[in-house]
């Protein structure tokens, strides 16, 4: 076996072991590398900044435990910016686990102690609604016809915030963060095309390319591009969190992937040369 063949046949366990080591080192001693913010996240940030005080945002938590490491930090950063700017939030979930992501996000944001926000006046969580696009159309169409209670079963009719919100026209903007392609497209279909609302979209990085045409055509005013977008938002809002820590880990893991790609290709090319020689 030539040295090139040996290089292309490292056992799976060795490759996986190297990946784990590449994650552990920067997590234990972060590098604190500078970040360059992408235009899509900058646009998300600028859109929220431009909203007048008191504007109501409909925010969809469209992910569960699988998406939380990537999208949770971005949601936290987005909520910090929203509460800092005295905007109002109506939160819903199109994901089955969304109602369990909500307390995790709120535990990190702490709107009451950090911003003096009051539940029912400044933000309300209406919980999970099944049906994806049907749920979106329902909330944007006639919210009170569909939803009578919040996620804990309290009537929303007496809440000051909800008394002023009846449907799409009362939302200044619709924002979503999701791991689901159906949800990512669905909000554009329902909020933008059906109800003519501005939309901000957050997805896993691997979905960003497929929703990019919506951003180019103005159907999405900004995109939170997975963990990269989350790190950008943490940086822009001045609330560093897990996404910025993740950026350091990404440096190691992705450099390792680049090394794997280089080793694999050089070895493959050299083997081909040896074979033809």
């Amino acid at each position: 076996m030539s040295v090139w063949e040996k290089l292309t046949s490292l056992p799976r366990e060795v490759v996986m072991g190297l990946v784990i080591i590449a994650m552990l080192i920067p997590a234990l001693s972060p590098l604190g590398l500078p970040l360059m913010t992408g235009q899509m996240s900058q646009d998300w940030y600028d859109t929220i900044e431009a909203l007048p005080e008191g504007s109501v945002i409909l925010f969809d938590i469209g992910y569960g435990s699988g998406g939380y490491p990537s999208l949770g930090p971005g949601t936290i950063a987005a909520f910090h910016q929203i509460f800092e700017n005295d905007l109002k939030l109506v939160i819903m979930a199109t994901a089955l686990e969304g109602t369990l992501m909500y307390p995790l996000v709120m535990a990190a944001v702490q709107p009451e102690s950090n911003y003096g926000a009051v539940y029912g006046e400044d933000y309300v969580f209406i919980g999970y609604i099944a049906g994806t696009q049907t749920a979106m159309a329902g909330v944007l169409g006639d919210l009170h016809e569909l939803v009578t209670n919040d996620y804990q079963g309290n009537p929303i009719s007496g809440m000051p915030l909800m008394d002023n919100v009846g449907g799409a026209d009362d939302f200044a903007i619709v924002a979503y963060v999701t791991t689901s392609g159906d949800v990512a497209e669905g909000w554009v279909y329902q909020a933008y095309s059906q109800y003519n609302r501005d939309v901000l979209g957050g997805t896993l990085s691997m979905m960003t390319t497929s929703i990019k045409p919506y951003y180019d055509s103005g159907q999405l005013l900004g995109i939170m591009d997975g963990v990269k977008g989350a790190a950008d938002l943490e940086f822009l809002t001045g609330h560093p969190g897990d996404a910025i820590v993740s950026s350091d880990i990404l440096t190691f893991t992705q450099t390792l992937v680049l090394i794997f790609i280089a080793v694999g290709n050089i070895s493959w090319f050299m083997q081909k040369q040896e074979g033809s020689g």
């Binding site: 490759v15 569960g64 435990s65 699988g66 992937v257």
Partner: peptide, 17 residues
Amino acid sequence: GSTMYSSLAFYMAYGAY
């Protein structure tokens, strides 16, 4: 949920190699 969903990272690295 988060580990099952994300452990594909290892296969991405292996696939890249």
